[in-house]
Simulated scan of single mutants.
Amino acid sequence: MGKTRKNILITGASSGLGEEMARRFAAKGRNLGLCARREGRLETLREELLAANPGISVAIRGLDVTDHDAVAAVFGELRDELGGLDRVVVNAGLGKGAKIGSGRAEANLATARTNFIGALSQCEAALEIFRAQKYGHLVLVSSISADRGLPGAKAVYSASKAGVAALGEALAAELAKTDIVVTTLLPGFIATDMSSKAGDSSALTATLDEGVSAMVSAIEKEPRRAALPGLKWQGIDVALRFLPNELTNRLV
């Protein structure tokens, strides 16, 4: 990476990973454009960030990433308000889910719409801006679950995150010889409200501090792909991708 990415847009910034990433980047002196459905929580976060870091700018917008036209409009507004965008973190996600065919299709469809179609809308809007200015850093927050389809209630979540990972891989290959960098993050279990509701293994779950520290560190290094946090999740990533199903079925 060359110059510092000064102006950063983060979606899904009202809680969990997005909220904590906003705190970390604010502490580094970056200007932030923050989006989420819960605009009231963004107002509170903006006040907190400006009080702790008075030298930065924080712009907020309410946004449902499943509204494609709204995504394009809001990204443009935040670019204009901040005076440009250097990095966009596609983070907004949904963890609903049910066994397929169990009569709860709407939970699965909502997860697919938010996690994949919503991510695609964000990539469209971000890359339109980056292509026009000929530089930028696009960060896609996928999941270790992208490595191998997970059974039961997590099936659609893992499928949607696999779609995000494949999208990141495609864009990284396409843009490899340009000044637009694409990074795909594959976090393992990190303690958030979403992970607790999903019933993730407590023995494998990293603290929010540990998880977001790893994410921010990886984002700043701008790799093409990063499984995290730590060697444990890098190992699980390799195992899920390359070991036979007979062995990995025990992990999922």
Rank of each mutant, 00 (worst) to 15 (best):
L32N: 05
T66K: 15
R224S: 14
G118T: 07
A27D: 02
N115L: 13
V182N: 12
R131A: 15
G95M: 07
G18L: 12
A165K: 10
R131G: 13
T4C: 10
K161I: 11
D64R: 00
S142E: 05
Q122E: 11
A165Y: 03
D209S: 01
V58R: 11
K6Y: 00
V58K: 11
I129K: 06
C35G: 12
L140W: 08
F130S: 03
A162F: 00
K154Y: 13
E124V: 07
G118C: 14
T184K: 07
Y157I: 08
L204V: 06
D209E: 09
R24H: 07
L63N: 04
D237M: 00
L228V: 09
S196I: 12
E39V: 12
G97T: 05
L94I: 05
L94C: 14
G29N: 04
G93I: 04
T44H: 04
H68R: 15
A70N: 04
L32K: 05
A36C: 02
D86I: 00
R225S: 06
A105F: 09
G12L: 08
L138K: 01
P244C: 05
K3C: 03
G199I: 02
G199V: 00
D67F: 11
N245D: 11
F116Q: 13
R38P: 01
S196W: 08
M1H: 04
S143Q: 04
T248V: 09
A52P: 03
